[in-house]
């Protein structure tokens, strides 16, 4: 049995406009107590303006690190990370501050971590506006609007401890989009929620994407989320490994999975494939006229031969 790859199948055509999120050969190495941890090892990612993209991957694959870099809270060790025209590898501290105020919104996994416990929902939403210098009179009005859009206008005067998890996360989403950022980054926003609340939150995220035109990159383990977006990017060992593109077909939503071939020519085969065919250590590649055949490295070891 072989797996085959076809040229250009996984990548959409390059648009003329610069994407809202562009990562090129992104590397992030942490040093903790003398030990180097390579969290991202040459990650490539492109998210067009207005897209809603899900990012999936195993724990430790680098998803959160990527989001931290894209939100301007961390800097890459090497490579390019551009968001809405901001080169995050070279911006100074002041520019980074402006970037966080106006360009990105960030939604942490734990709802409580997104909100100040001693402020009401409306005040929490007004907080980024205060930081961005929005006028005192305008803040309450805009906060109310945002909360109404997200369906939590009725709890505007309650503090986080008086809200359900779903309400908290929707208010947190309101905080993230308070200054109408161009990009919304969400780190497992439904991770701590029940399915109903999860639906509500995801619906709110989708509404922000569609109504406000915000580009959304959401890290998730939640199939409810990942299976309901047009594009799901998989990360493995600090690199983008696969992409699933979904489109409406005649028989409903059609999902097509692609492996990602990076600039260095590296290709990550899905674990399910390699596991099923027993591909490990060395594999043999055969260049065919219209595809590349990948076979187990030791013919006849398991009595099978690649086709």
């Amino acid at each position: 049995m072989t797996t085959t790859t076809s040229p250009g199948a996984a990548r959409p055509a390059a648009p003329h406009e610069e994407p809202d999120i562009l990562c090129d050969n992104l590397v992030r190495i942490y040093r903790t107590e003398g030990i180097e941890v390579v969290a991202l090892q040459g990650l490539d990612l492109r998210v067009e303006r207005g897209d809603l993209v899900a990012l999936v991957g195993a724990s430790g694959s680098g998803k959160s690190t990527l989001l931290t870099i894209l939100s301007g809270l961390d800097t890459p060790s090497a490579g390019v990370a551009r968001v809405a025209g901001h080169d995050l590898s070279s911006t100074d501290r002041r520019a980074r501050l402006r970037y966080r105020r106006h360009t990105v919104g960030f939604l942490f996994q734990q709802a409580a971590a997104n909100l100040l416990p001693y402020l009401t929902a409306a005040e929490n939403v007004g907080l980024p506006m205060l930081l961005a210098g929005v006028g005192r009179r305008e803040r309450p009005r805009r906060a109310r609007e945002v909360l109404d859009v997200l369906g939590v206008g009725d709890v505007a005067d309650r503090r986080p401890a008086e809200l359900s998890g779903g309400q908290q996360q929707r208010v947190a989403l309101g905080v993230a989009v308070a200054n109408s950022p161009r990009v919304l980054l969400a780190d497992e926003p439904t991770g701590e929620l029940d399915s109903r609340s999860s639906d509500e939150v995801f619906e709110a995220v989708r509404r922000a994407n569609e109504d406000l035109g915000t580009t959304v990159l959401v890290v998730t383990h939640d199939p409810l989320v990942s299976e309901h977006v047009a594009r799901t990017v998989g990360i493995r060992d600090g690199r983008t490994s696969t992409e699933v593109l979904r489109r409406d077909g005649e028989a409903g939503l059609v999902a097509e999975e692609y492996a990602v071939l990076d600039r260095a020519g590296r290709l990550q085969l899905p674990a399910a494939f390699t596991g099923r065919l027993g591909l490990r250590d060395r594999v043999r590649l055969d260049l065919e006229p219209d595809h590349i055949a990948v076979r187990p490295g030791h013919d006849g070891v398991d009595g099978k031969e690649g086709a």
């Binding site: 100040l116 416990p117 001693y118 402020l119 009401t120 409306a122 005040e123 929490n124 007004g126 907080l127 506006m129 205060l130 005192r136 803040r139 309450p140 906060a143 109310r144 505007a156 005067d157």
Partner: peptide, 17 residues
Amino acid sequence: MTGPRTRTLLVRGLAAV
């Protein structure tokens, strides 16, 4: 409904500590 002010952050933040 009012938006948060710096004073609000100061005063209510004290309660946390």
